[in-house]
């Protein structure tokens, strides 16, 4: 049997279109140099938050008064603060706190907001009115003010900051998801699955949600930037992480008193915040362009 080159049992698999689709998005993302820079920065930050603390030799919280208020040097790369702690070490240790706040609070807001938005957009009518009016009330507050109010009610701590930032992210997600769900539910394939006997729950989570993932992913990425900024802001005001936690906002706040004589104390934590926020914003923007099917 010379013809049995390919065994008949072996199916010829066509390329999985889902992976093909991701490849297209990846290709477009790769062309966007600025977004890629943002993406690599994010990767670098994540890696640094894991590995960094293992590599630094100094203690981030132990005061070392003799070496206080030193400028950047070979020993103290970013200088030392008013208690003589190495700012570089503190920034590296603070990295995981910042990312943790960013990811967890956005995850909280995203899950709640997406759920509310889906219900609102899919059912419409009175449900929609009630949910969206509550969201409008939340949106009416400037973000930081709302977070500030929530934290002052709950008390200042890292976890409360996460909850506060999560809550103020809810209306943003709810709004975007509601709009998309509203558009998708009118499409014929939703009528078709309804005619197939699918329940509302099945339609919402199995058919509507996967079709509106792109705006959710983009929004989540951009939202992390805002969350990091807000959390730092709260800590700066003394409502978030408490000393001696090496949280960047708190470090900024501590450095404020020495702004004129020793600007490096506030400068480096500030730059770190800017770098993280910028990285997520750039990457989010690039992701939006890459995921937008109209730009194919």
């Amino acid at each position: 049997m010379a013809e049995t080159v390919t065994s008949p049992n072996k199916e010829v698999k066509p390329p999985n279109p889902q992976i093909e689709n991701l490849k297209i998005v990846w290709k477009k993302l790769k062309k966007n140099k600025i977004a890629m820079a943002g993406g690599f920065l994010i990767l670098f930050f994540i890696l640094a938050s894991w590995i960094g603390p293992l590599l630094t030799t100094m203690d981030p919280s132990q005061p070392n008064i003799p070496d206080r208020l030193q400028g950047p040097s070979a020993e103290y790369w970013f200088g030392t603060d008013h208690q003589g702690r190495d700012i570089f070490t503190r920034i590296v240790h603070g990295m995981s706190i910042t990312l943790y706040i960013g990811f967890v609070s956005v995850a909280l807001g995203c899950v709640a907001g997406v759920f509310l938005g889906l219900i609102s957009g899919y059912y419409g009518g009175r449900t929609d009115t009630v949910i969206m009016r509550i969201m409008d009330v939340l949106l009416a507050f400037p973000g930081i003010l709302l977070a500030l109010a929530i934290v002052s009610v709950l008390g200042g701590s890292l976890n409360n900051v996460i909850i506060a930032v999560g809550i103020f992210s809810i209306p943003v997600f709810a709004r975007i998801v509601r709009g998309s769900a509203l558009a998708v539910r009118k499409l014929e394939y939703i009528d078709a699955v309804r005619a197939l006997g699918a329940s509302d729950t099945r339609i919402i989570f199995k058919h509507v949600l996967p079709n509106i993932m792109s705006p959710i992913i983009v929004q989540a990425t951009l939202r992390i930037a805002t969350a990091v900024l807000t959390a730092s802001g709260l800590s700066f005001l003394g409502l978030g992480a408490q000393p001696p936690t090496p949280e960047w906002g708190a470090m900024l706040s501590a450095g404020r008193n020495y702004m004129w004589e020793h600007p490096h104390i506030a400068l480096f934590p500030g730059l770190a915040i800017v770098a993280v926020v910028l990285a997520f914003n750039l990457f989010g923007d690039g992701l939006r362009d890459a995921l937008d099917p109209k730009m194919k």
Binding site: L187, E188, G197, S199
Partner: peptide, 26 residues
Amino acid sequence: QMRRIRGNQISMIFQEPMTSLNPVFT
């Protein structure tokens, strides 16, 4: 009860085959 009938005892096909299938599933 209607859900058990739909797609099981009474089925429907729609006008627009281009939009009647969910684009994200095989």
